Simulated scan of single mutants.
Amino acid sequence: MKIKEIELFAINLPLIDPFIISYATYDSIQSIIVKMTTDDGYIGFGEAVPDEHITGETWEGTFQVLKNHLAPAVIGLDPRQFEKLHDLMDHIVKPAPAAKAAIDIACFDIAGKSMNVPVYQLLGGRYHEKFPITHVLSIGEPQKMADEAAAKMAMGYDSFKMKVGTNVKTDVERIKAVRARVGEDIAIRVDVNQGWGNAATTLTALRGMEELNIDWLEQPVMDNDIDGLVEIKAKSAIPLMIDEGLRNERDMREVIAKRAADKANIKLMKCGGIYPAMKLAVMAEMAGIECQVGSMVESSVGSAAGFHVAFSKKIMGSVELTGPLKFSKDIGNLKYDVPFIELTDKPGLGIDVDEAVLAELTVFSEKITA
């Protein structure tokens, strides 16, 4: 089996509501879909959702990296040779993780389909039967966020991730408002997306949050400030999760060595796809660091890939892959039974891509052949 052709589709995925986090507001999500075809007719889909603030990649740049470098290089290779594929991509360009993830995911989709098994069977088999889905509250006025949480509770959600990261006083008011509305039994996770900047500001915020029963605090400091996480972790009882500061094996080694975090948010777009995500999960498991598979607000393609990783590893305690629930139009049919996700046993990623919708959302495209 050899990769014969790769088609690239740069698309805009329309959001139902704007998604607001500490460093940006999104009205739509810019994604690149890879359609990979083999010489014996198997078709796999992959996805790249780059973010210049997190992966260091732009939408346009990622398309060009795929078009001019990665896609031509993997034409003619066996899509099931994951180690060799990643070694080749790593020699061609560094780091470009979202671009590599698109190739990686499409290869896993093909491998599963060719063997007539779900991707999670290629990763050690299914461990979890289902995961509860955490609803993400984007930044808003305190009472607006509390109202949204109450409405989602009525739909069955029992955990929330709150996006904060503006100024400490207002952020604490947001958390207090949501906690007061949802009660004490609902899980609240707080994601700062680097917005508090440093350990001193974060510790000030934590003094206002001590009685709010927070599940964990995620990435309060800048992504390169591992020592700042160490200081916060030493001075606070609230569990600490690393996200933007964890991209690759080198980052994970430093986190483990310094005991800088209690939890790790592994995202396929940050690390380069399914194969490197599994490596990070194994490293975390050896160090006793609980993991989740997080979201870059991917379509059904990227979200399904993340779920296969999460379902296959015991160390995964949570998932936040809610992109398809946020779109007014999606290219795939990943199924949610809100507030749960339950993967099927269909081969590959287990989803169907609606190519008519894909064409409708495409801004520009390219085909690469041998």
Rank of each mutant, 00 (worst) to 15 (best):
V353P: 01
N265G: 12
A111H: 04
G112C: 04
W196T: 12
T134H: 06
V282W: 05
E320F: 09
I238D: 10
V190R: 08
L349R: 08
F9Q: 04
G208K: 11
P97V: 04
G165K: 00
I16C: 03
A71C: 12
E249I: 05
L349W: 07
M316N: 03
D354V: 07
H135C: 08
D354Q: 12
E342H: 06
I21A: 11
V319L: 13
M1P: 02
A150H: 15
G228N: 12
E244H: 07
E148F: 13
A146M: 00
H86Y: 02
K113D: 00
V168H: 01
S159E: 12
E355K: 06
D223L: 12
E184F: 14
I43K: 03
K313E: 02
F311C: 07
L349Y: 11
I351V: 14
L321C: 01
T166D: 13
D225Q: 03
G197K: 02
A149N: 11
K163R: 05
A281M: 15
Y127D: 12
D39G: 09
I274H: 03
V93G: 04
D330N: 04
G332W: 11
A24W: 02
T62A: 11
R207E: 15
F45A: 01
N265K: 11
T322V: 15
A305D: 05
I315H: 10
D251P: 03
G44S: 03
K144G: 09
V282P: 06
G302M: 03
Y42F: 06
P132G: 09
L85F: 04
G125I: 10
E244Y: 10
I256S: 10
K346I: 08
V255C: 09
G306F: 00
D90E: 08
I232R: 09
C271T: 15
N116I: 10
C107E: 02
D243R: 09
D51F: 07
E7F: 01
M296E: 08
D147R: 00
A305H: 00
M241I: 01
K130A: 14
M155C: 01
F63Y: 12
E7P: 06
N248D: 11
C107S: 05
I214P: 10
M1K: 07
G317F: 05
E57Q: 08
W216N: 14
R189H: 14
L280I: 01
D345R: 01
D330R: 09
D251W: 03
D243H: 11
S303F: 07
E83Y: 04
P276F: 09
K130I: 06
K258Y: 06
N116K: 15
N68A: 06
M155D: 06
R179D: 01
D78L: 00
F307E: 00
T37A: 10
A111D: 07
I105M: 00
E60M: 08
I242Y: 13
T362W: 06
V282A: 13
S318I: 02
S365Y: 14
P18V: 08
L203E: 05
I139E: 05
G112A: 01
E249Y: 04
T38W: 04
Q219R: 02
D223P: 13
Y127L: 07
P95Y: 12
P339K: 09
V119L: 03
G348H: 01
I289D: 05
A48P: 03
Y23F: 15
K267C: 10
W196D: 14
A10N: 12
I256N: 06
S303N: 12
M283Q: 08
M222Y: 12
Q219F: 00
K335I: 08
F364G: 07
K67R: 12
A154C: 09
